[in-house]
Amino acid sequence: MGLFDYFHANRKSADVAKERLSILIARDHFHRHQPSFLPALQNELLEVIKKYVDIDQDDVTVSLDREEDCEILELNIALPEKRHNKEA
């Protein structure tokens, strides 16, 4: 048993509970404050990209994340394997 495991096994369960709870509640709050424009943004992006590439709903994901004190808006667009350039 490594030192770390040993430490963990001996931690008071109340301390574990408190730590889990703090993380959990921070996450709950984060989701509660997720801006409501995200779904709309996702749809509009989809429409724009569709003009050029043949993709559908599931290929675009938009999410907001927080690291330290900066917010990161993450766009993920999966292009289909065979690219259908609509003009081509």
Binding site: K12, S13, A14, D15, A17, K18, L21, S22, I25
Partner: peptide, 16 residues
């Protein structure tokens, strides 16, 4: 149980 570290304390909960 709080004293034995088996239960969240008043302070813990109030803090959260």
């Amino acid at each position: 149980r709080v004293k034995n570290g088996e239960m969240l304390s008043v302070g813990d909960i109030q803090e959260i």
